[in-house]
Amino acid sequence: MTSLSPPKDKIWWNEPIERTELIWITIVFLWGLVMTFMMPFWHVVGDQNISSETYKTTPEKFMQQTQAFVDEYTVRKDDGPRQYPVVKPPPGGDVYLVARLWDFWPVVELKKGESYRFHLSSLDWQHGFSLQPANINIQIIPKYEHVVTFTPNKSGDYSVLCNEYCGIGHHMMIGKIIVVE
């Protein structure tokens, strides 16, 4: 009798279970409970939990909101090659970041230790918000406005890379976030 032949007893349910299997099933089941517990536990004690606050939007509406945000809080032109506006919102305030074929707009300047409500959406296809080197990765979906609060814990220059394939210019899609002390 093997795994290629019918079981010895038609009612295989009544066969005894081998001791090692019982030990292992117990360990693995408890481990599953630990892992199940970790996720809600992190919502209570952890500082890294993505909000699910989301609104339906349109590319036009989201672009308008971003333009208003840029108009209100721009402090200078970025000294990088693209000369994008550098926008410095007040701590605790809202940040609008547009993802589109193929860049992120505008450049944002944040203060370390302060929290900001980021509004993320795409004007066209799906994109990825990959903040490096902080290693934070969030999906960006057109017509959905995702509101996520970020609290930077280190100062420096950060890049936003697109890590959702978005056509032939995908590898040109890059943005910038500056965190100051």
């Binding site: 996720m39 939990n49 990959s130 290693n135 934070i136």
Partner: peptide, 15 residues
């Protein structure tokens, strides 16, 4: 299983 935990996925999604 590790990257499938809700929050840990933030670190590696689409990398």
């Amino acid at each position: 299983v590790t990257m499938g935990a809700e929050q840990i996925n933030i670190l590696v999604h689409n990398t």
